[in-house]
Amino acid sequence: MGDHLLEVNNLKTHFRTERGKVTAVDGISFHVDRGEVLAIVGESGCGKSVTAQSILRLFEEKGVTSYDGEINFEGKNLLKISDSEMRKIRGNDISMIFQDPLSSLNPVFTIGDQIMEPIMLHQKLSKKEAYERAIEMLKLIGIPAPEQRVHEYPHQISGGMRQRVMIAIALACQPKLLIADEPTTALDVTIQSQILELIDSLRQKLDMGIMLITHDLGVVAQHCTRVAVMYLGEVVEEGDVESLFENPLHPYTQGLISSIPQLFGNRNKKLSIIKGMVPSLNEIPKGCRFAPRCPFADAKCMNEKPELETLDHNKRIKCWHHQTIKGAVSNAT
């Protein structure tokens, strides 16, 4: 197990709020290998983005945020190293693409300046070399007339273009791990697939590991190798893309998958929904966290916390009834 690019063990991220301590990410474990794409899916507010930002230790306000567990990146525990060591890793070994391309670029600098920034910071290149590298990056991500574009400001280019620039910034130092936090949510569908294709081809070229955070299961099916499903700060199911889509074991995963609209099928059939809302982090259920919304829940689910079990084929699941549920679903269909 020691040879993964990134290995997260029992990570917990706590925030101190006015209403007491809140654990946004509660003991999650997963790993990412070189050249693979791990998808993290789940509803809004389930802790996907917090997980991503915890890996880079972006919450650093003392007394407000605290971390537990281990984040091993190439054998180093990122939670133990000093701030300056962490800064050397950020942007150089691990990069991140943020959700919102419209506000992720500084309005007072040209896009060229912003691509050059991490290059000059980490690679110790001269300004001229960094400039050439920036043009190279813009070419790589398919921006026409890069010599002209480097001098433009973020407000002069479109949203899709800005997201490309964000990718160029993230990839400028050829990171080993790319964390993409819903990189396509703000974009329209055609640009979406272009961006994902681009990330995918760059992954092959640079042999990066990618952690893709999304709630778009279509994207997951197309681009990812493995999936971890998160619910309320926990990983509830993890497995290969094929097995997860064909044979979802956790009732939450089943709910997610059956709520995707089908292109070919009975149009009059209503889309199934997962009833209820994600509970607030202040009132976490005592037993299984999904129990209040789960159609299969019984007394045991309400009172006892299930553990993450490892099944064959690298599949992991956190549910008391996955054996029986599996049968129930295959009988029903």
Binding site: L56, L58, S84, R87, K88, I89, R90, G91, N92, S95, M96, F98, Q99, D100, S103, S104, L105, N106, P107, E117, P118, L121, H122, M166, I169, A170
Partner: peptide
């Protein structure tokens, strides 16, 4: 703003963020 967080994620120091951005 997100771009300040993005700068942090790129490894910029507090000094650089304050004065440069």
């Amino acid at each position: 703003q997100t771009y300040i967080e993005a700068m942090k994620a790129q490894g910029a120091s507090s000094m650089r963020i304050i004065w440069g951005h």
